[in-house]
Amino acid sequence: RLRTTITPEQLEILYQKYLLDSNPTRKMLDHIAHEVGLKKRVVQVWFQNTRARERK
């Protein structure tokens, strides 16, 4: 499986959303995924990875 490439514009939106809520609901994940044009699962994993990186 190929990795999904996230553009700088998408990253900017994801980080803005992360600052508002680091643990979004399913509904919010759907909305964010639609807004940035990525699959919900990709957005979900991005949030998981970002939370894990923050803990280190």
Rank of each mutant, 00 (worst) to 15 (best):
K40C: 08
T50P: 03
E9S: 06
V45E: 15
T7N: 05
Y18A: 00
F47N: 01
E9Q: 10
E12D: 09
R3D: 15
T7V: 02
L11Y: 11
E9I: 07
Y15S: 13
S22Y: 03
K17F: 15
E54F: 08
L38Y: 00
R55S: 15
P8F: 15
L11M: 10
R1G: 14
I6Y: 12
V43H: 00
I6T: 07
K40L: 14
F47S: 00
V42G: 04
T7G: 10
Q10V: 06
V45K: 05
F47V: 00
R41V: 12
N49T: 12
K17E: 11
Q48E: 15
L14V: 00
H34L: 07
L2T: 14
R26G: 15
Q48W: 07
P8V: 15
T50M: 12
T5Q: 13
A33Y: 01
P8D: 09
E54C: 06
R26C: 14
T25Q: 04
N23R: 09
L2P: 07
K56H: 08
I32R: 00
N49R: 06
V42S: 06
N23C: 03
E54D: 11
E54I: 08
L19Y: 05
R26T: 14
S22G: 10
T5S: 07
Y15E: 14
V43W: 00
G37D: 05
Q48I: 02
N23K: 05
L19V: 09
R41Y: 09
V42D: 14
Y15V: 09
T50E: 15
V43Y: 01
D21V: 05
L29T: 06
L29R: 03
T5G: 11
Y15C: 05
K39I: 03
Q48P: 03
I13L: 09
K17R: 13
S22N: 06
K17G: 03
A33T: 04
R1T: 15
R51C: 10
N23I: 05
K17M: 13
E35S: 07
L11K: 08
H34S: 11
F47T: 00
R1A: 14
L14R: 01
Q44G: 11
K56S: 14
T7W: 02
W46H: 01
Y18S: 03
R1C: 14
A33Q: 01
T4K: 06
P24R: 01
